[in-house]
Design a protein around this nucleic acid. Sequence first.
DNA 1: TGTACATCAGTGAACGCGCGTTCACTGATGTAC
DNA 2: TGTACATCAGTGAACGCGCGTTCACTGATGTAC
Lengths: 202, 202
Amino acid sequence: MSTEYHHGDLPTALRAAAVDLIAERGPAGFSLREVARRAGVSHAAPAHHFGDAQGLLTSVAAEGFATLTDNMVAATQGVTDPRERLIALGTAYVDTAFDNPAHYALMVTHEFTDENEPELAARSIEAFTALMDTVELLRDQLNPDLDLEATAILLWATVHGLVELSPNLGHVAESTGTETRAIDTLLATFADTTISGITGIG
Amino acid sequence: MSTEYHHGDLPTALRAAAVDLIAERGPAGFSLREVARRAGVSHAAPAHHFGDAQGLLTSVAAEGFATLTDNMVAATQGVTDPRERLIALGTAYVDTAFDNPAHYALMVTHEFTDENEPELAARSIEAFTALMDTVELLRDQLNPDLDLEATAILLWATVHGLVELSPNLGHVAESTGTETRAIDTLLATFADTTISGITGIG
DNA sequence: TGTACATCAGTGAACGCGCGTTCACTGATGTAC
DNA sequence: TGTACATCAGTGAACGCGCGTTCACTGATGTAC
């Protein structure tokens, strides 16, 4: 156990400690020494597995993209109605970001990770592919001339923007007068607007 | 001049130095000592004007919001066609972000600034108000039942998302085969979709 | 116009701190025979 | 099954560095009379 000389799975423990630390102090508050401390290991140990801080944070970001992909795929599985599907995808994205703020910050910031690292690059492409699947469904069901890539980027930009703006969303919730989360209302509005827009352009 | 004991306008010089430094190294690479060095002043001088690093960065963020508001207002002045107006507003936002990456990072990050500082709060509300003016024009011209706040947030989220995703936009530009910036194409598509969507919902 | 004094802006030395990196080491694990 | 040895994971002391903060100070500016 923890009294053993060899840790067992130190890489995983270090990622978990990094996530906790970043959730508390933000990505800029991260340090390799503090992470090692929390993982109960000497401060020179992480170098064996990740080289340096950037290596560890890149690994965490890759893990975050994998989770995002899994959640988006699971949420849209078998959903073929365009409106339902858009809402399911958007909700999965937003919920994943809210549930994993440290991962999300690293996925999005680019300042602390190596975007060219193969593992991270692969995981982020998979996430984009999951999004693209839904865009293709929209094309098939709504408008054969839909610009796939532009639509995918606009969808991504919007949900990403919603996540970042969400701290300012308080009074929208109040104005609806329901138990619904403000962001759910916005996602529904967004789905309606988008579908109407896509159909109208055709 | 620079040989005088008193600087003349040290706060302005410090903000400028901070902007340069952040543009080079990112917000996390900022330090008060390095800023003082670049402003040609002892490292204890900034404390006289801003207290600490957060104070200085908060001031830079406020300056960024003021510029954004000015640019959005100027770009939409007298533009009453909904599509043109949306594109003008979006372009002003995106261009301001591109032209002032250090300011933009501080406006958006929240990790290094004090959002409750009155000056910053006032400037960010003014920017939101400028956005709201355009949303009201959309309501007046397209759909009297438009949800103003939800629409404003969705517009903001989208342009913000486009700015953040823009590093990944390279191949979109290629696919258009024109001299047009990728982001201009996306903004035009977005304007079309949004207007069609808003009108359709009515 | 001149003097005295208060206030303000900026200096520079000193402090203690946490950081990343290096390095010789030791303990545990795995493999060859 | 047992021994020898190579490899790998983690240790802990040492290093030099840049940082923020404090503080007694000095030079410049502004104001009262």
